[in-house]
């Protein structure tokens, strides 16, 4: 089956050609139709740049190489006219901050209906009726009231629902969600994640779900890609990644997620050090300075992302043993 989205050797760099600041350094990732892939990583790991590249939204300062194929068409270098036909119609994105993602001077009804007017050539009244129905589907209690509101009159959770609703109106094949619940309270986060899961079941769209929080991604994603310093360091089915991470960074990240159940540890597990700054990524494995399993070659030789026999892949010279082989 052809992949819906195929990112191939994507590189995104800023700054001068002599001293480039590479935010994404060779990412290859595919999503099948209807699949949910989670991308997990810390600040500056390149996850947002990957999202923006997937939407063709990188700024003019970004130098992009590699390919981002959506349904067979390469979005890198695609003329804006064609890009605008795809975006909002077949590809949509939910941003972290629902406040800045909505237009402050337009009523909710207007900016939602606009999606159908622009992309589907719908009439305004039909589009507003569809927006009204969608607000009900995303769990807004009084859709008629909400339709007439301005963004500032809504709570953060309602705004994020509105945004997701606006994305779903055109029935996109791929939803890119960049930290969609990070700005929200836990109870609202739980509702929004539930909503995304339900919308995926109902519409069969694929989701690229990006978060710094493994627990958020784990509940929804079929597969998880772990990013570190601009690269994917591990890619595996969710259950496999959680039960038997192969890359030491994935394992460390898993341990660092604090739990509210079980015994309270004397100290929280931590990872010493910090990720390399964007300009300080020399050769070798970017995680090596923080890794307890490093050996001499880790500091000089960058490990490639290698497929393992469990259907996943990891980029490590000394991966943790596969779960099956462990006592």
């Amino acid at each position: 089956m052809q992949d819906l989205l195929a990112v191939e050797e994507l590189r995104v760099a800023y700054g001068s050609a002599e001293a480039p600041l590479e935010a994404v350094r060779g990412v290859t990732l595919a999503l099948a139709a209807g699949e949910c892939v989670g991308v997990v990583g810390e600040s500056a790991s390149g996850k947002t740049q990957l999202c923006l590249a997937t939407m063709g939204l990188l700024g003019r300062g970004a130098r992009v190489s590699g390919r981002v194929r959506f349904a067979g068409e390469d979005l890198v270098g695609m003329p804006l006219r064609r890009l605008n036909q795809l975006r909002g119609a077949r590809l949509a994105m939910v941003f972290q901050d629902p406040q800045t993602a909505l237009t402050p001077h337009l009523r909710i009804g207007t900016q939602m209906a606009e999606v159908l007017v622009v992309h589907r050539g719908a009439g305004w009244s039909a589009a507003r009726a569809a927006a009204l129905a969608m607000l009900g589907r995303v769990g807004i209690e009084d859709p008629g009231w909400c339709l007439e509101r301005y963004p500032h009159e809504l709570s953060g959770g309602m705004r994020q629902r509105v945004l997701i609703g606006a994305c779903l109106l055109s029935e996109p094949q791929l939803l890119v969600a960049d930290e969609p619940t990070t700005a929200l309270d836990v109870t609202v986060q739980a509702q929004v994640l539930e909503l995304l899961a339900r919308m995926r079941r109902e519409s069969g769209m694929a989701i690229l779900l990006v978060s710094h929080d493994l627990a958020v991604v784990a509940g929804l994603a079929d597969r998880i890609a772990v990013m570190y310093a601009g690269r994917i360091v591990e890619l595996a089915a969710t259950a496999r990644l959680l039960s038997g991470p192969r890359h030491p960074y994935s394992a460390a990240l898993l341990q660092c997620v604090p739990d509210i159940r079980g015994p309270i540890p004397v100290r929280l597990p931590t990872l010493p050090g910090q990720p390399p700054a964007i300009g300080e990524r020399a050769g070798g494995c970017p995680f090596a300075p923080r890794c307890e399993r490093r050996e001499a070659r880790c500091l000089v030789e960058t490990p490639p992302l290698t497929a393992d026999d469990e259907g996943g892949a990891h980029a490590c010279h000394r991966p943790l043993p596969a779960r099956a082989g462990r006592p």
Binding site: A218, A239, L242, A251, L254, L320
Partner: peptide, 12 residues
Amino acid sequence: AVPVLPRVGGPP
């Protein structure tokens, strides 16, 4: 509402 990581056997 706190999302919980399913800890299948636990990481190493």
